[in-house]
Computed example of a mutant assay.
Amino acid sequence: MSIPHSKRICQIIKLKPSAVDEYKTIHAAVWPGVLAALKRAHIVDYSINYYPPLQLLIATMKYTGSDYEGDMKKVAEDPETQKWWAVTDGMQESFVEGATGSGKDIPWWTEVEEVFRFEGVSQ
Score class of each variant (00 low, 15 high):
residue 109 W to G: 06
residue 95 F to I: 02
residue 121 V to P: 00
residue 80 E to M: 12
residue 121 V to I: 14
residue 56 L to T: 09
residue 88 T to N: 03
residue 86 A to C: 06
residue 35 L to H: 04
residue 90 G to R: 07
residue 109 W to F: 14
residue 73 K to P: 00
residue 114 E to F: 07
residue 56 L to G: 02
residue 4 P to A: 12
residue 39 K to F: 03
residue 74 K to T: 13
residue 93 E to D: 13
residue 5 H to D: 15
residue 15 L to S: 02
residue 66 S to P: 01
residue 119 E to R: 12
residue 67 D to C: 10
residue 38 L to P: 00
residue 98 G to P: 02
residue 30 V to L: 11
residue 100 T to Y: 06
residue 9 I to L: 14
residue 77 E to A: 15
residue 73 K to L: 08
residue 13 I to W: 01
residue 123 Q to K: 11
residue 23 Y to N: 08
residue 7 K to H: 10
residue 79 P to Q: 07
residue 55 Q to Y: 09
residue 94 S to N: 02
residue 3 I to V: 15
residue 103 G to S: 12
residue 122 S to A: 12
residue 94 S to P: 04
residue 92 Q to F: 02
residue 73 K to S: 09
residue 15 L to C: 04
residue 95 F to W: 04
residue 91 M to S: 04
residue 112 V to D: 03
residue 109 W to S: 09
residue 23 Y to V: 03
residue 65 G to T: 06
residue 123 Q to P: 15
residue 24 K to W: 08
residue 56 L to W: 06
residue 46 Y to T: 01
residue 88 T to C: 10
residue 7 K to F: 00
residue 115 V to E: 05
residue 34 V to Y: 13
residue 31 W to N: 12
residue 52 P to R: 06
residue 110 T to A: 13
residue 115 V to Y: 11
residue 73 K to A: 14
residue 65 G to D: 06
residue 112 V to A: 02
residue 75 V to K: 01
residue 20 V to Q: 08
residue 56 L to M: 15
residue 36 A to K: 15
residue 83 K to F: 01
residue 12 I to F: 01
residue 37 A to R: 02
residue 35 L to V: 07
residue 62 K to N: 13
residue 40 R to G: 04
residue 37 A to P: 01
residue 30 V to E: 06
residue 115 V to P: 01
residue 41 A to P: 00
residue 32 P to V: 12
residue 97 E to R: 12
residue 78 D to P: 03
residue 109 W to P: 02
residue 66 S to H: 11
residue 98 G to F: 09
residue 87 V to M: 11
residue 41 A to C: 07
residue 117 R to K: 14
residue 102 S to M: 10
residue 112 V to T: 10
residue 40 R to F: 03
residue 93 E to W: 04
residue 42 H to Q: 06
residue 2 S to T: 13
residue 73 K to G: 05
residue 62 K to I: 03
residue 35 L to F: 04
residue 20 V to C: 05
residue 120 G to H: 04
residue 81 T to S: 12
residue 34 V to G: 04
residue 26 I to K: 12
